[in-house]
Write a protein that binds this DNA or RNA. Structure first.
Lengths: 227, 227
DNA sequence: CCATATTGAATGAATGTTCAACAAATGGTG
DNA sequence: CACCATTTGTTGAACATTCATTCAATATGG
């Protein structure tokens, strides 16, 4: 199962582990490894996207946020566009790795697997104001930028297929009536919709209530599998 | 029930009906009523948002799209920001009027009302590539712009309350177990999530499959009310 | 003729990119 | 180890471009 993870680009997370090795002290020093500096700039980009939105995110703001000079971003990333693509790729990789790990840890029971995938979606490390805001900023631009499209739906075709497969299995073991593909779409759309509400800061939606609603859906769609 | 509609700002839709009265011929003529011209510019703004996204939408592009000169937008709307707010307000009003009308036409049966609300969400007049793309463009900027926040969640607090009320009624008549508030959130989040998929142009989601999934949700959540 | 609408060029501010100068690390050499 | 040369990273100012806004001139309808 981890085999399917490897084909993804994971330079960013490699750089992350390197950060941990070298410690935070060096991050501010003059010399830092290329990957560390790039990651630092990517984090500053996420900050800026979250705070100011896509349209208002400037190179200067990113550089300031990282505590570095103006020209530095064009040195590490060729252009603003490439910085943004690298940032999106980083977030995509992180999200993918997260749900794949969650799935792997869930064991073999499909009901448990589905439950863990739902939980993974609302995990603090993935689902927090800063990152959700950055996601939304990208989504807003995705349809008009072909380069973003493949990366911007954090949940990709493979993710969707996993959902369909799980729903198919549950259908057989529970004797449910509906089309697994249809119910899988309903489920994943609801998860994205709950994210959307969290992103927008709708008052009535918190991480807890969102998770509660997701579980209510599971319970009503698969009554034999969830309490 | 229609009483609750009136307090909303509906200048835009009034202007729309005026368009119909004066016909399309005058739209290109030198003189057109203030409201008609403003609506024309708003439509051009939606076009631009859909085609180029928020960040790339320029005053020049809007003016070109409307077939008018560069300075015209600042004459009718004071600034770019006010043009965008007016556009968002227009879309918000249209969406609100649409679901309220649908609800009104559904009669008194709550199950029927809920079904009609779902249908309304996927009606062609509301749910088409152009408008969905424009919505997404606004959503992407909403969290970082306080002015947008109130208007950008097309489904507002009152809409959500209607859902909760309907779920409460169905719960009583059907003897379901769950918390109406929780299931209402799941339902409305799923609708938004399906919109999101349509917005992003995910291959596996069309207006038909989205509607199918929404209905599957209704059937599994309220089995006694929907075949 | 007056009020109003419209034009399009001028203006100025914001911002992405470039680049010459500078600093720091690296590595080879005596 | 000391010294220098080369590579690599970093800075900040200069540059060019894009774009919202302004406004004087012009056109239009009443």
């Amino acid at each position: 199962m981890l085999e399917t993870v490897t084909p993804m680009k994971t330079e960013a997370s490699d750089a992350l582990s390197e950060t941990a090795q070298k410690g935070d002290a060096e991050r501010r020093g003059r010399k830092a490894s290329k990957e560390v500096r790039q990651l630092q700039l990517i984090e500053a980009t996420i900050d800026s996207l979250a705070k100011r939105g896509y349209a208002e995110t400037t190179m200067a703001d990113v550089a300031d946020g990282a505590g570095l000079s103006r020209g530095i971003v064009n040195f590490h990333f060729e252009s603003k566009e490439k910085l943004l693509i690298a940032t999106l790729q980083h977030m995509y990789d992180e999200y993918s790795a997260h749900w794949r790990t969650a799935l792997q840890k869930a064991g073999d029971d499909p009901a448990r697997q589905l439950q863990h995938l739902v939980w993974a979606d609302f995990d603090r490390s993935i689902c927090n104001k800063r990152k959700l805001a950055a996601w939304l900023a990208f989504w807003g631009e995705a349809k008009s930028r072909p380069t973003y499209q493949a990366l911007s739906s954090s949940r990709d075709a493979y993710y969707q297929q996993v959902f369909i497969d799980l729903c198919t299995t549950l259908k057989q073991s529970g004797g449910y009536a509906y089309d697994p593909q249809v119910i899988a779409l309903a489920l994943s759309a609801m998860l994205e919709g709950l994210w959307l509400r969290l992103m927008m800061g709708t008052e009535d939606t918190t991480r807890e209530t969102a998770l509660q609603s997701a579980n209510a859906f599971l319970a009503s769609a698969f009554p034999k599998h969830y309490d």
